[in-house]
C-alpha cells in the first residue's frame, strides 16, 4: 500500500498511551526503600522511554506518509497489507465475533458458545469474502449445513477430550 495513515496514527497512539501511563505512575504511593527506587520508578522510566523513542518514529512515519513513498520497511513486506477488497470488513467481523465469544463463553457454557462461534465465523468469512456469490441456493444450503456439522463435531469432540480424557473442566 502506498499510503497507510495507520502507521503515524499508531505512533500517536503510543505517544498518548505512554503519556497516560506516566501520569498514572506519578499517582503511585512513593515508598522509598534503600537505594531510592520507588514503586513508581520503573513505570515512569519506561513510559518516558517509550515516549522519547516514539517521537522520532512519528516524525519519520509521517514524513514517509506525506511523501507517499513506497513502503520499504522489510517487516511491512512480510505483512501483505493490501488484502482483498473485503479485508477490513473481514477483520472487523472476526474481531467482533471473538469478543462476542469471550462474552458468552462462560455465560452460555462451552458447548453452545463454541458451536455458535465456529458456525458464525466460517459462515461470515464465506459471505464477506464473496465465496458464496455465484453459488446456487441448493449448494449454499449444502455447504451451510456442512459448516454447521463441522462446528458441532469440532466443539463436542474437543469437549470430550478435555473433560473426559484430560479431566480439565470447561464452563458449562
Amino acid at each position: 500500500m502506498d499510503r497507510d495513515i495507520g502507521k503515524p496514527l499508531f505512533d500517536i497512539f503510543l505517544l498518548v498511551a505512554s503519556g497516560i501511563g506516566f501520569y498514572y505512575a506519578t499517582t503511585l504511593p512513593s515508598i522509598t526503600s534503600a537505594g531510592g527506587i520507588t514503586p513508581a520508578f520503573f513505570p515512569k522510566l519506561l513510559s518516558g522511554l517509550i515516549f522519547v523513542c516514539a517521537v522520532p518514529c512519528f516524525i519519520r512515519d509521517s514524513l514517509e506518509w506525506l511523501s507517499q513513498r513506497r513502503e520499504r520497511d522489510y517487516e511491512a513486506q512480510n505483512v501483505r497489507s493490501d488484502g482483498p477488497k473485503s479485508a477490513v470488513a473481514q477483520w472487523l467481523f472476526i474481531m467482533a465475533l471473538i469478543i462476542g465469544y469471550a462474552i458468552i463463553f462462560e455465560r452460555l457454557g462451552y458447548l453452545v458458545s463454541t458451536s455458535l462461534f465456529c458456525f458464525l465465523s466460517v459462515l461470515g468469512m464465506v459471505m464477506l469474502s464473496g465465496e458464496f456469490s455465484g453459488m446456487s441456493a441448493v449448494n449454499k444450503l449444502k455447504s451451510g449445513l456442512g459448516y454447521l456439522a463441522f462446528s458441532i463435531i469440532l466443539s463436542s469432540s474437543i469437549f470430550f477430550v478435555f473433560t473426559a480424557l484430560f479431566n480439565i473442566p470447561l464452563p458449562n
Binding site: 469471550a102 463454541t114 462461534f117 465456529c118 465465523s121 466460517v122 464465506v126 463441522f150 469440532l154 470447561l170
Partner: peptide, 18 residues
C-alpha cells in the same frame, strides 16, 4: 483456512481458560 481459523481461536480460548 476458514475452518482452521475458527479451530485455532477455540483452542486459544480453552488453553487460556484451562
Amino acid at each position: 483456512r476458514k475452518q482452521l481459523l475458527a479451530a485455532i481461536v477455540v483452542f486459544c480460548f480453552i488453553g487460556v481458560y484451562a
